[in-house]
Structure formats: C-alpha cells, structure tokens
Write a protein that binds this DNA or RNA. Structure first.
Lengths: 198, 198
DNA sequence: GCATTCTTATACAGATCGGTCTAATCTCGT
DNA sequence: ACGAGATTAGACCGATCTGTATAAGAATGC
C-alpha cells in the first residue's frame, strides 16, 4: 500500500491533495498518474477532489503553479546573499547544483509537463508563464551589468540554464550545474571585457 | 477522419505502423497515443500489429531506434562537409538550426520520452543509448582538437547542445541554435588558446 | 442550536486502455 | 495448384481512466 504523503490531522484535504499530486505528478508524469492514485495517497475521498478542484486539469494547473512559486522563492532567497551583479548571475547555477543533488531530481517539471502536454492542455500556459519568468530573471540580472549586449547575454544564460537542467536529468549528473556555471562565468567575463558600456 | 501517413500500396504493414507511430508518438507523446490511433493512421489491422511487434512497448522501442538512427545519419552526413576539427564541432549546431526550423519541431524525442517514462519502461534504455552516442560524438570531435581539457570541453558542448534543444522547444525559438553555436565557438577558441597541447 | 458547508464512502457511468482470439481472406514461394 | 505465412475485420476481455451521483456524517459559523 502507498503511504500517505502528509499527516491526515489538521491539514485540509485541499492541501493534502496538492501535496500528493505534487509528488506523484513530478515523479511519474502528469499523464501517467490517475486521480485514484492521488486521492489514495492524499487519504481523501474522491468527492473532496471535485469539491475543491474543477477536475484533473485544475489540479495539474495548481501543481505547476506551486512548482513555479516554490522555484522562484528559492531563487529569490538565494539572490539576497549578494548584490554583486556578476555573482548574482552565477548564484543561479549554484542553486541549480543543490537542486540536482536531490536524489529525487527528475528534471524540470515544466519541461516534463510540456513533453506530454496535449495541444490545448493547461500545461502549456503554465509553462509559458514559467519561461517568461526565466527570461525576465536573467534579463534583470544582466541589466544590472554594465554591458551593451544585454539581449544576447540573456539568451546565452537561458541556454546554459536549460542545458544544465536537461543534462543533469538525462545523464543523472548533478555536476552539470558546475559545468554550466563555468560557462556562465566565461560568457559574463567576455561581455564585460568586450561589450562594457562606454 | 485521420488521414493515412503513408500510401497503403506496396508498403508493408510493419513499415506503415512504424511511420504512423513515429508521427503520432513524436507529436503527441508516447503515452498519450493509443494503439488504436496508430493502427487507424497506418491503415492496418490490429492483429498485424501484434504479429509484427511484441506489443506497444516494442513499437515504442522501434520508434526510438528509428529516431536515433535518423539523427545519427543526419549528423554524420553533415560532418562529411569538412575535416577541420573546429568547424566540425560547430557544424553540429548548424544541423540543429535546420532541425529547429522545421515547424513540426517538438523537442528531442528522447527527452520527451524520458519525461513520461515509467521506471522500468523501454524508453530509458533507448534514451541511455542516445546519450552515450551524444557524448561519444562530441568526445570524438573534441579528441581531434589539440587540447588538453578534452573531458571538460566535451561536457561543455553537451550542455550547449542540450540547452539549444530545450530552449528551442520551450520558447519556440529556432535561433537558440545560433546562440549555442556562438557559445560553442567561444569555448572551443578558449580551450585552443588556454589548453592547447604543448 | 441549527443551518450551511465540507468531507466521507461507495456505487456507477461511459470511454479508452493494451492485448487476445477467431475465422475468413489474401499473398506468395514452390 | 497447393500450402504456409501474412493480413484482415471485428468481437471480446479485464483493467483503468475521468467524472457524476447519492446519502450519510463531521465540522464550522452565526
């Protein structure tokens, strides 16, 4: 029998459903997990699912929303450590390293969700929002740099971020974060030396 | 009604099944497509599927095998264009650019398959083989370079490859290939200047 | 206290899933 | 021409899917 994801006492069915969905959806994929599995792990009646959520699509949307919020909070928290523009960019890759080191790491939830998303599915909108946030994150970090090629550098950093995330998942190699960080340091240094504002 | 993927005349049911599976599995995901959809698009009886294949898992394995073979052939074909070690590395990213420009591009079939793969699924073995090939590809291209940090440079190029593939899919931006190519040129030039063999 | 809301357990519906089976037909090598 | 192998169409199976219905109990707020 599957063990409960959270204590039944004093936690609302809604929260228990979200916790169970988060674990199951991330570990096995949104499509592969049925709602029966979710309500069983949450220890909740099926009726409560449809009372608190509009349906599975709604649960998927909330799952991705929660992942998005948790990740932005983790990044924002780490970014308070320093104010140096160059170091703040590299900090993102340090956070990635701690993420990859989690033995339960199974890749980016949004990339995985997009991989199995139907054409009109709720995953696509959530993923688009996540990508907007990612581009904005690097865009703002780069804007703090005295550099002329802001757009180019931002695009480069996004690719390094995506490469680290994907390589870490596909090859089970957390050190992909360190490799990407080295590349990020290189490209930032290059922009600072060749494209510094006059 | 769904149109046939291939002409019924003079093409064996096995080939028609593979062609239909390739299109459906890639476009909608391995898990989301049922065998009924495949046999309908292939214009083949259900019995023929189980006569020619062991089951859906077997069909999935052959689908990924075909993707692997087609991609290696495309890369190998492009690599005949030049013998210059540095240019050959960058050529890989040129092929990526043509791949991303296909309006039907929906990401790397192996990454997508892994995203929805069950723990013991046939996708994992196929994906592992693909990743071995990818590392070997860059490993051999780097080995032709007179450089000391072969392993480091190989890992860096794999990350740039993965980043381009993922960013192109998530942001629908084929120009990710050009961005990654620029980074690859930078890192190759850096290794040649700082790590050239004595 | 009492009504409203929330939660529970369970049965059920309609659809689809991968897979098996049968029996007739077709293809093709000898 | 004959027989083996390949293909066909379709019925059928048990399992699973998302979602609904029902009826009774727990919690909550006024």
């Amino acid at each position: 029998m599957a063990e409960k994801a959270v204590d039944t006492k004093k936690v609302s069915p809604r929260q228990r459903l979200l916790a169970a969905a988060d674990e199951l959806f991330y570990n096995e994929g949104v499509h592969a997990v049925g709602i029966d599995r979710v309500i069983e792990k949450a220890g909740v009646a099926k009726g409560s699912l449809y009372y608190n959520f509009g349906g599975k699509d709604d649960l998927i949307r909330e799952y991705l929303l929660g992942r998005h919020a948790a990740w932005t909070a983790r990044i924002d928290g780490a970014l308070t450590e320093t104010q140096d523009p160059g170091e703040r960019i590299l900090l993102v890759f340090d956070v990635l390293e701690t993420l990859f080191s989690d033995p339960g790491y199974r890749g980016c939830s949004f990339m995985n969700a997009v991989a199995e998303a139907p054409v009109g599915g709720p995953e696509l909108r959530a993923a688009a929002n996540f990508r907007s946030w990612l581009h904005e994150l690097f865009g703002q970090l780069v804007a703090a740099l005295d550099v002329r090629n802001t757009q180019e550098l931002t695009d480069q950093l996004v690719i390094l971020y995506d490469g680290a995330v994907t390589a870490a998942q596909m090859d089970n190699s957390p050190q992909a974060a360190a490799t990407a960080k080295t590349l990020a340091a290189m490209v930032v240094a290059y922009s600072l030396s060749e494209n510094r504002v006059a």
